[in-house]
Each structure stands twice: as structure tokens, then as C-alpha cells.
């Protein structure tokens, strides 16, 4: 694979400008019902999410089902239309100076279900070459073959096969090749390794690391597996019921989680130590329904430290006093919040 084949759009803003800025992103899905299909309620899938992704970094997004991480991914590449908010890619705002078509040249996505994301009636080669054909690049098949080779699939053996003839790991390589054939600068990996067997997952993670280095890629890595996210990410963003609750560099959050929810999520990881197994579940019950999320801080219904202010006022995202890069959304860290333990944080 030579450098000329991989031709992403040139950088415009310089290295200091974040590759992606997301401001106050919101998506509510209507729940229709009744005789005339009127909107009965709204699923608040993503509600006021803001974050940045620097050039060349990997941002991990974690959270449980219904927290809005997959919806966020689909909003980022315009598969779902946002209700509100701004997506700024390399300095250009989507819908203003950046048309959707151009965004999709710069941002690609790899989905979780490697089988469902491949058209069962197209050969591997046709699937990989589809995007570049659409964009009108010359020699899309040649490029697709090179990309297949690059992700470890011998094009002579695999080009004319169908998705069902491949193993899960091989199919996920095809999906990666298809995304990279478009020469993106940002790749959104939505649970891209979650469905794979552990031994295959490691192979694909190695591949993703290699590709990132070779093509200077920026990743948004969405997963529920904290170990995998820690391994591949530079920063981690934690979501709960459609909102961001904590964003921090990996090492910082791994050492100490600031938000009570993040703390619980980390404690829920299996211990891997047969002599020191988990004794007490960190949280009781399931996450609440995003149709009618709790008022104030959405986590207050399950939080050990909740007080009256948590039920009424929504906290804001702010850096920790000792480390401004570690940002959290919690009244415990805001000295002026009116929480009985305001400014003290959660006990270690």
C-alpha cells in the first residue's frame, strides 16, 4: 500500500485544532402510538453531548445500553439527523461550510455486527469498492484489493467470496478495509470488536493499532468493555442516559474515577482474582428508561451520594481542581453546588 493510495483530505486547521468538535448534540426519538400515530413520548437518546477529539488521538466512549453511545456515533456520520447541536470537523461546521457528502469522505464507521454490515449478495471486493466507486475515484477495484491486502486478507483468495463464507474476524477486516478505502481521517468504531472471540479480538486490535500509526488515523472507539477501551484509547468519555458524565485521560480515570457512576461501572468489572472476588454489586437494579429520564442529575436515582440538589439541578461539566484535563459532571466537585459534600468529591 503506497502513500499515494491513501489520500485523505488535507489538514486545514493545523495540529492544535481538534479534528472533531461536538457541541450540545441532541437527538430525541419520538415514540409513536395511538390511533393517528401521534408522538406519545420521546426517547432522549442523546441530550446535550459535547466533546472534542484531537488529531491523532483515540477517544474511547463507554457506557451501558441505552446511554446513547451508538446514537452519538450515527449522528457523527450523519446517518441519523440531529435535532440540535453542532458538529465541527477540522474547523468546518457540518451543514454550513461542510456538506454531509464531504463529512462522509473524512469520517467513516465500522459497526459491531460484521455480518449485518455486509450486503450478503455482494462479493467482498464489490463491498469494499462500493464507496470509492460512489465517490468517483479511479480504479476502485485496484484500491479495494490493496486495502484488503493491507488488512490481512489476501485479495486473490477473498475478493470473490461472499460474506457468509468468511469467519467473524475476517468479515470485520473487510469492514475495516471498506472504511479505509475511503481515506478517512476519523474512524468511528462502534463496538467493532465486541462480537468477536477473544483470541480474534486481539488480532483485530493489533491491526487497528498498526493502521492508526500507518495512516495517521484518529479513532472514536465505542465499547462496553473497559479493558479494551483502556488498551486502545488516549482519553475515555463515559456516558449515562444520553449525557456525558466524565471525560478524562485514560491513566487518570483508571487510577481514580471521579463520577459515582464511573466508579460503579469500573467496580462492576470482574475482578480476575479468584482470591479476591467481588462481594457486593456496586449498583442495584437496571439503568432507568431513557424515555423519561430522572430530573436533575440523571444518575441521582441510583447514586449513593445523592442529595436534594441532585434531584433538582443538573450539574455541569467541569475540570477537577487537581487536574483540569479530568472533567466530570457532578455536584460533589462543585464547591458552589449546595450539595452537603460540595467540593469534596467522592471518598476514596
Amino acid at each position: 500500500m503506497s502513500a499515494t493510495d491513501y489520500a485523505p483530505k488535507p489538514d486545514t486547521g493545523g495540529p492544535a485544532q481538534p479534528l472533531l468538535i461536538v457541541k450540545d448534540l441532541q437527538k430525541h426519538f419520538p415514540v409513536r402510538g395511538g390511533l393517528f400515530g401521534r408522538t406519545q413520548a420521546k426517547v432522549q437518546a442523546v441530550d446535550g453531548v459535547s466533546f472534542e477529539v484531537k488529531k491523532g488521538e483515540t477517544l474511547g466512549i463507554v457506557g451501558e445500553s441505552g446511554c446513547g453511545k451508538s446514537t452519538t456515533a450515527k449522528l457523527l456520520i450523519g446517518l441519523t439527523e440531529k435535532d440540535r447541536g453542532e458538529i465541527i470537523f477540522d474547523g468546518l461546521s457540518l451543514g454550513q461550510r461542510l456538506p454531509l457528502k464531504d463529512l462522509r469522505k473524512g469520517v467513516q464507521m465500522v459497526f459491531q455486527d460484521s455480518y449485518a454490515t455486509l450486503n450478503p449478495r455482494l462479493t467482498i471486493l464489490d463491498s469494499v469498492a462500493f464507496g470509492t466507486k460512489v465517490q468517483g475515484l479511479k480504479d476502485p477495484n485496484g484500491l479495494a484489493r490493496k486495502m484488503m491486502d493491507r488488512v490481512g486478507l489476501n485479495p486473490n483468495r477473498f475478493a470473490h467470496r461472499y460474506p457468509h463464507e468468511l469467519s467473524g474476524g475476517q468479515r470485520q477486516r473487510v469492514n475495516i478495509a471498506r472504511a479505509l478505502a475511503m481515506s478517512p481521517r476519523l474512524v468511528v468504531l462502534d463496538e467493532a470488536v465486541s462480537a468477536l472471540d477473544k483470541s480474534v479480538e486481539a488480532q483485530v486490535l493489533n491491526l487497528l493499532n498498526d493502521l492508526r500509526a500507518e495512516f495517521g488515523l484518529t479513532y472514536i472507539f465505542i465499547s462496553h468493555d473497559l479493558n479494551v477501551v483502556r488498551y486502545i484509547s488516549d482519553r475515555i468519555l463515559v456516558m449515562y442516559l444520553g449525557e456525558v458524565v466524565e471525560v478524562a485521560p485514560v491513566d487518570s480515570i483508571w487510577k481514580s474515577q471521579a463520577h459515582p457512576y464511573t466508579r460503579s461501572l469500573f467496580s462492576a468489572m470482574p475482578s480476575m482474582d479468584p482470591d479476591n472476588r467481588t462481594q457486593e454489586p456496586p449498583l442495584a437494579g437496571d439503568p432507568p428508561n431513557p424515555i423519561n429520564p430522572p430530573s436533575g442529575c440523571r444518575f441521582h436515582t441510583r447514586c449513593r451520594f445523592a442529595s436534594d440538589v441532585c434531584k433538582s439541578d443538573a450539574p455541569r461539566l467541569d475540570g477537577l481542581a487537581q487536574n483540569a484535563a479530568h472533567m466530570v459532571v457532578c455536584h460533589l466537585y462543585d464547591a458552589a453546588s449546595g450539595h452537603p459534600r460540595a467540593g469534596q468529591g467522592i471518598p476514596a
Partner: peptide, 16 residues
């Protein structure tokens, strides 16, 4: 299905 989303994500028109 996801492969329709994947195809739309390449910037292909609805007809394509």
C-alpha cells in the same frame, strides 16, 4: 440493516 447504513455512510445517493 447495518449494510444500508454502511452504504449511506459512503455518501451514496438513495438511488444508488
Amino acid at each position: 440493516l447495518d449494510y444500508i447504513d454502511a452504504a449511506r455512510a459512503t455518501g451514496a445517493s438513495a438511488l444508488t
